[in-house]
């Protein structure tokens, strides 16, 4: 389908532009991956070859880095993360994780500390943190999220 080919071409050239804009920097791979992930919401599998070519790395090296870090993924990440650091667990985040999973299923993952441990427990919804959460507050926040 021509529309699809167009999309692929466009995304390939976006990947190349991103690689080009960072390639002069020492240790450019992480900044490149972050920008690609921010642009696409994930790392397209097809991006591995142009990244490797652009940065003079092997495809195995690029894949190795993508798979090592929790942030980088080939599919879109979760929309909800529940903090399961010890501080949030002391305030009942295990129950929050359960209620979030009941509502959002696979779109929910744990995160190990968002750095707001004096206002535990914390959740992250669509990249925004919410502290002093309770299952009831979480349910109403998530309902708003679904409606939006």
């Amino acid at each position: 389908m021509p529309a699809n080919t167009n999309n692929i071409e466009r995304s390939n050239s976006l990947v190349e532009t991103i690689v080009e804009s960072h390639r002069h920097r020492p240790g450019a791979l992480l900044p490149v991956l972050h920008e690609i992930q921010a642009s696409f919401g994930f790392i397209p599998k097809d991006a591995v070859t142009p990244i490797a070519d652009g940065l003079n790395l092997s495809r195995a090296e690029v894949h190795g880095v993508i798979s090592f870090y929790h942030d980088f993924r080939y599919v879109p990440g979760p929309s909800v993360r529940v903090c399961m650091g010890e501080a949030c667990q002391s305030m009942g985040s295990a129950a929050l994780l359960e209620s979030a999973k009941a509502l959002f299923g696979d779109g929910v993952e744990p995160v190990y500390c968002v750095g707001n441990c004096a206002c535990a427990p914390n959740v992250e919804i669509a990249h925004a943190y919410h502290g002093r959460m309770s299952p009831a507050k979480l349910t109403s926040l998530l309902a708003r999220e679904v409606a939006a």
């Binding site: 240790g27 992480l30 900044p31 940065l55 880095v65 090592f68 870090y69 929790h70 190990y112």
Partner: peptide
């Protein structure tokens, strides 16, 4: 430089590997 969500990259040598663009 933004890290990428690996706790072990707080260890100083893993951090340096990460800054160099490698696995931590």
């Amino acid at each position: 430089r933004r890290a990428a969500g690996a706790y072990v990259c707080g260890e100083e040598t893993a951090l340096l590997e990460s800054l160099e663009g490698k696995r931590g």
